[in-house]
Computed example of a mutant assay.
Amino acid sequence: MLRSRLQLAAVCSGLEAALFGAGLLMIGLLLGSSARAEPIRGAGSTFAAPIIAKWAENYRASRVDGGDFASPDWTVDYELVGSLAGVMRLDQPELDFAATDVPISHDELVKHGRQQFPIVLGSVAVAVNLEGIAAGDLKLSGQVLADIYLGKIQSWADPAIKEINPDLQLPDVKILPMYRKDGSGTTHMFTQYLSSASAEWKAGYGADTLIAWPVGTGVEGTQDLVLAVKATRGAIAYAEYGQAERANLAFAAILNRAGRFVSPGPEGVRAAQDAVDWSKAQDFAVSLTDQPGEATYPICGATYAVVPIEGQSPGRYRRVHDYFRLAFDTGARDAEALRYVPLSEPLVSEIKQYWLRQPAAGH
Rank of each mutant, 00 (worst) to 15 (best):
F251K: 09
E294A: 11
D277W: 08
P214Y: 01
G242N: 03
Y297W: 02
S279M: 11
E245V: 15
D322Q: 04
A305N: 05
Y297I: 00
I299T: 13
R319Q: 04
G242W: 09
A235V: 10
K230H: 03
G204W: 05
V276N: 14
A212D: 14
S198Q: 02
K202N: 12
G242F: 04
A237C: 08
D274A: 15
I254M: 05
F251I: 03
W201C: 01
T232P: 03
R246S: 04
D277E: 11
G206T: 10
G268C: 07
Q312S: 08
G293E: 06
A253M: 01
A247E: 08
V276A: 12
G204T: 10
V276Q: 12
Y317V: 04
D290N: 15
S287Y: 13
T217E: 10
L288Q: 09
A285Y: 10
T289S: 15
L249T: 06
A244V: 08
Q291A: 10
I211S: 08
Q243M: 14
V306Y: 12
V229K: 06
A244S: 10
D322A: 10
G301P: 11
A295V: 04
P266V: 04
Q291D: 09
P298I: 01
A281G: 14
A285Q: 15
A212M: 07
L225K: 06
G315T: 00
R260Q: 07
G301W: 12
V276R: 14
G242V: 00
D274W: 07
